[in-house]
Amino acid sequence: MFLMNAIQINRSEPLSIHNQLMEQLKYHIESGAWEPGDKLPTVREMAQALRINYNTVRMAYQELERQGYLVSEQGRGTFVSTGTRRMPEDKQETLLDLIDEALIKAKSIGITPGEFASAAYTRARIFPLENPDVRLLFSECNLADIDHYARNIEQGTGVVPDTVLVEDLRKMEWSFFKQYDLIATTLFHVAEIQELAGSHHTVLGLMVEPDYLEVLAEIARLPNGARVGLICAEQKGAEAMERVLIGVGATYPKFILAGVDQPDKVKRVFQEADLIYVSRLALRQHRGDWPKDKPFRPYVDDLDDGALRLLRRQIARVHFAKKSRGLEVEHYHSAG
């Protein structure tokens, strides 16, 4: 059922009245607040109720009809289309959480809701979400992690990176790197890949952090002095896991480390540890059965939010720089 007070127009906001009306109508339809078949007020009724121009409402209705949100029937009025795509409830909740979090952060630095809405609307129209013309190379030392972090990058930036193992990059000529706009890796490999890529590229080092719910929250429940086993493909990988955990504040457990190539140390981990984590690479490389007397958990980590935010900014910078150069070339040819 349509409720007129569900639409709020603020003339002092940077976002135009036309866009305010359009986006609010779409939101109420996509969220399911207005059901297919619900009748909207006439253009004149809407304009009078909101005290806005008749033509502003008429153009908004026409545009939403072209987009498939509304349907007009001669002599009957304008209705919510039965073919309108509605957002699933779980996605709707996630979207509202994202918006609420962003609004709270914006308010904390002095940005008004109107300024936020205008910037978000404009950014959504120009941000390169669909097939951005940015070539990104991502490198890591093993297949288990390179696949996982590449998915992190795709989900966090919209760009599908080309992936090459560090050992394969060592065989590449310098010219191989010239085809890429951006090169990224985890912090562990920045120095080596920077040397391989040369001074013409700045290699972005991305920080990795343990998953809060799957790892940190579980460790936090342990009593002081508890023993946590960390198993990776090699001892040095387990040591890297330990350094990361200590770096994020897990300083109170005693860590027991092992590589899957060290069966005696693996046996000790299962004998002595209160909680055991096994890395993705170790799970992939291990052959045979694990000791059955104690369960273990996969060690879940991801590229952290700050790293993905840095990468998004760099992708946007490259995209807009390319777009600007394209416009300059187009202008040059048209002028000639």
Score class of each variant (00 low, 15 high):
R243Q: 13
Y277K: 01
S279D: 03
A258T: 08
D264A: 15
Y299W: 15
K292W: 00
I256E: 08
D305P: 00
I276C: 06
V244D: 12
D305G: 14
Y252I: 06
D305N: 14
R297V: 04
D304R: 15
V269D: 06
K294S: 03
V266R: 00
R268E: 14
L275S: 11
L283R: 14
D304F: 02
Q285K: 13
P263K: 12
D264H: 13
I276V: 15
E242K: 15
R284H: 11
F270P: 09
F296W: 08
R268M: 10
A282S: 08
Y299I: 03
A282Q: 02
D293T: 08
I246G: 09
D304P: 06
V248P: 02
E272L: 14
D261R: 12
V300N: 02
F270R: 05
K267S: 13
Y299R: 03
E242W: 03
D302Q: 14
D261Y: 09
A250I: 10
K254V: 13
D293Y: 00
V269Q: 02
K265M: 13
G259I: 04
D274M: 05
Y299K: 01
Y252L: 13
W290N: 03
D261E: 13
D293W: 00
D305C: 09
P291F: 06
L283C: 04
P253D: 06
F270H: 09
V278F: 01
A258Y: 06
Q262L: 04
D264T: 12
F270M: 08
Y252C: 02
P291T: 06
V269P: 11
A250D: 03
S279N: 03
A258C: 08
D264W: 14
Y277I: 04
V260P: 01
W290T: 07
Q271H: 10
V260Y: 07
V278C: 11
D274L: 05
V278Y: 00
L275Q: 12
K254D: 12
A273N: 06
I256D: 05
K292D: 11
P295L: 05
K254N: 13
V244G: 02
V266G: 00
E272Q: 15
R280M: 07
R297G: 02
A282Y: 01
R280H: 13
L283D: 01
D305Q: 15
L283T: 02
Q285Y: 13
K254M: 07
